[in-house]
């Protein structure tokens, strides 16, 4: 726990309604993200996913609880945590280069123009946008816009990346393409990422840990699913891995059934230490008959670790 890059301790958010009633969207959330880890958060709409991300980025304040980055409590937005917005949030009056250079020169205000440009160019190349530097956002496709958003976030070399359903506005083909790209970039840069999604397959492909939220109001973390497939997974052979369907079924079953009923059926539930689940590992005995392409890491054969 102590080596976690980001630690969330008991955050909750309460909104005051117009008639004076208080609505608690989520409460008593505890989880942590290690350096280099890719964590996805899945939940139905209304459980306050975006609010959680805004609290982590510092754009919003939680009603109670604390968020620590590198052992320090956060107070407000910081260049440590770059945000990739769902709506890409590019400035339409700036070119691709201008948008990224704005971020770079905000991060290093005393850099010369040449240095800022060179640094920005590196990240434009990283997201495969070379040649589009002088284009305005309006001239780009949805996928290219989000690439600029990713390049802008990475260009400030943040400690961690926060993504708010970054691909939900894109068509399926472009989404798949960008997921592969994000996987590649994260492998190259060892970037720590926290991402919100409602796409189960996206989470399985990208995440090392998947945080499952119950339905709001009073949403909680139901469990943390550990992705038991190796990091070398690709979109191409993901579904061939024996753990793929156990993980996928577990997530879907949670979203369809258990996310609603969770609060009532958990007697020994401890919000400070939500159960960790490793689907696939418990029933490995069944799957050993088939050749396993990627040997699973040596972990105890228990489904639930408390």
């Amino acid at each position: 726990m102590s080596d976690a890059l980001i630690r969330i301790e008991g955050i909750s958010k309460t909104f005051a309604g117009r008639d004076g009633t208080q609505t608690t969207v989520f409460e008593d959330l505890h989880f942590s993200i290690d350096a280099g880890e890719f964590v996805c958060l899945i939940g139905h709409s209304g459980c306050g996913k975006t609010t959680i991300l805004n609290v982590l980025s510092g754009l919003e304040q939680s009603s109670s609880g604390y968020v620590f980055v590198d052992g320090r409590e956060i107070n407000g937005p910081s260049l440590d945590r770059a945000v990739i917005f769902q709506s890409h949030a590019l400035m339409p009056w700036l070119t691709v280069m201008g948008n990224i250079a704005f971020a770079v020169s905000s991060r290093w205000p005393d850099w010369s123009t040449d240095k800022v440009r060179a640094h920005s160019q590196k990240y434009i190349d990283l997201v495969n946008l070379a040649g589009a530097e002088k284009k305005r956002p309006a001239e780009l496709s949805g996928g290219m816009k989000q690439r600029v958003g990713i390049a802008r976030a990475l260009s400030i070399e943040p400690k961690m990346l926060l993504m708010d359903e970054p691909f939900s506005a894109l068509d399926a083909l472009t989404r798949g393409e960008l997921q592969v790209e994000v996987l590649r970039i994260c492998a190259e840069t060892r970037q720590t990422v926290f991402m919100i999604t409602h796409d189960v397959d996206e989470a399985i492909l990208l995440a090392d840990k998947i945080v499952l939220m119950t339905n709001g109001p009073h949403a909680k973390i139901a469990e943390v699913v550990v992705n038991t497939m190796p990091r070398s997974r690709t979109r191409h052979d993901l579904h061939k891995h024996p753990h793929y369907y156990p993980i996928r079924n577990h997530l879907i079953e949670f979203l369809v059934d258990r996310s609603k009923a969770f609060a009532s059926d958990a007697a020994d539930y401890d919000p400070r230490n939500p159960p960790q689940v490793r689907p696939g590992l418990a029933d490995q005995a069944v799957t050993t008959a088939q050749p396993v392409a990627h040997p699973a890491p040596a972990k105890p054969l228990v489904a639930i670790v408390r």
Partner: peptide
């Protein structure tokens, strides 16, 4: 002015 542009500026500590 769109909130998201202001949020971008805030996260960049502008």
């Amino acid at each position: 002015v769109r909130r998201e542009w202001l949020n971008v500026a805030r996260t960049l500590e502008v």
